[in-house]
Design a protein around this nucleic acid. Sequence first.
DNA 1: TATTGTTATACTCTATAACTATA
DNA 2: TATAGTTATAGAGTATAACAATA
Lengths: 154, 154
Amino acid sequence: MKATKAVPETDVRLVELVIALFDEFREHANSCMGGFDLSAAHAAALLRLDTPLSQRELADCLKYDASNITGIVDTLEQRGLVERQVDPADRRIRRLVVTGEGSRVLAHLRKCFEEASLVGRLDDDERSQLRVLLTKAVGDRSNTSWAHMLRGRR
Amino acid sequence: MKATKAVPETDVRLVELVIALFDEFREHANSCMGGFDLSAAHAAALLRLDTPLSQRELADCLKYDASNITGIVDTLEQRGLVERQVDPADRRIRRLVVTGEGSRVLAHLRKCFEEASLVGRLDDDERSQLRVLLTKAVGDRSNTSWAHMLRGRR
DNA sequence: TATTGTTATACTCTATAACTATA
DNA sequence: TATAGTTATAGAGTATAACAATA
């Protein structure tokens, strides 16, 4: 029975381990995106466009100012990965839809991401334990995605 | 005994959990640095100067081009947190030493970092298990530090 | 009037290249 | 000649503000 538990001080080593794992994955992700000649912003946008969004919605969920979306979508459109479709019900809105080519790139990109050897050093049991512990540690922070990781944010 | 283990595919959920934890800590770190009016680069430099370094050495271990160090150190020096001392043995070299005020800020900054509630949701046993699992998952990636986290890198 | 998207602009972060002062 | 540091500059990435089209 430990006595000093009033303020649960952070285990510094745990933080460092999480940073190390994250960093390993970030390097892997950078290498994936580089392979498709996509910047982090472009990859993040593409990953979010699995379901079509207006530019405004995309800006909101990537936490970009709306003014940045124009250029990002310009590039994706020039490369034939995404199409702007004017919403017939409200002609201010451009609905962004991934093209056939965009879908192919997206699938490859996702696959590359998933090949991270991030936890390849653990066996099935250990990974299962780890998932339980991390889920508890993370608490109610559920709004996470890979696109989320691709930005320095703030 | 599972059969499909040839290529240990990444557990996507595990990656997302690591991202979520990292992101929580990054937000906390940003808030700490903001409290001291330090940018990520300034905070990272200060954290590295626990032991004195030349500007070149600081650039190397922060993985900055040397040209960036000048401005960063300028600011830290103007704020009285760091001093440039000409190395008497080689007058090209500026040895960077943290001032008394710099030490105080550094201590507060570290303390703020350590107050992350990152794993406050786990009890001692769970944290111990988590540390074992993460250590194994991380493998030989040992060169991690908080300064490391403060950069988008690449 | 309010909202979507665009443009122009500015600021931060980081790298490259040319320079200086030492060695 | 080579190295430590500085300066000037350029390129990303992102934000703010003003604007046009539409609601």
